[in-house]
């Protein structure tokens, strides 16, 4: 028993996937409530299994948390990293979202890619490497432009760079 008490307890992060799964299944079942049985098939068959298995999982974990000593802040499945990495990760997430929004709202692939890569590399390697970051980002963005847009005709929303190049090339 003493050994069991010393064992690290999984962090609450373990609850996220089962809770999300139950929530999504509930929504899915609601979305097909008026449909024919063929449409409900997955919802009832898989959904029931998912809710039952998630519930068993949650109950066993809650039971374990309730019956053993909890060591705060960590565990064998600790899902939050040390603080500086967390901040960098959050910043990168914001940058990534910004990158998608920039492509979606008219900055175009090449400029968005250049800005994202430059900022991303600076964020992770330090501002002192800004020149190298910009150089790598420029090379990769131009390579991406040639590969995706010129060679494979990918239909990204066009930005100023793509419009300029298409006028230049035509």
């Amino acid at each position: 028993m003493a050994t069991r008490r010393r064992r690290e307890i999984p962090a609450a992060g373990e609850f996220i996937i089962p809770v999300a799964a139950i929530a999504f299944t509930a929504y899915y079942i609601w979305s097909v409530r008026d449909g024919p049985w063929e449409a409900k098939f997955s919802a009832y068959l898989v959904g029931t299994g998912l809710i039952i298995s998630s519930a068993i999982f949650l109950l066993t974990r809650i039971w374990r948390l309730a019956t053993t000593h909890r060591e705060p802040g960590g565990g064998e499945t600790r899902w939050w990293p040390p603080r500086p990495v967390t901040l960098r990760r959050l910043a990168l997430l914001v940058l990534t979202l910004g990158y998608i929004l920039a492509i979606d709202y008219g900055a175009g692939f090449t400029l968005s890619n250049f800005a994202f890569l430059t900022c991303g590399i600076i964020l992770l390697s330090g501002v002192e490497h800004w020149l190298r970051a910009a150089g790598v980002a420029a090379a990769l963005s131009l390579g991406g432009y040639l590969l995706f847009i010129v060679a494979f005709h990918t239909r990204f929303p066009e930005g100023p760079f793509e419009q300029f190049m298409s006028r230049l090339l035509s």
Partner: peptide
């Protein structure tokens, strides 16, 4: 990391 992110999102 930024390269993977940009090219896979593409």
């Amino acid at each position: 990391t930024p390269t993977i992110l940009s090219f896979t999102l593409t």
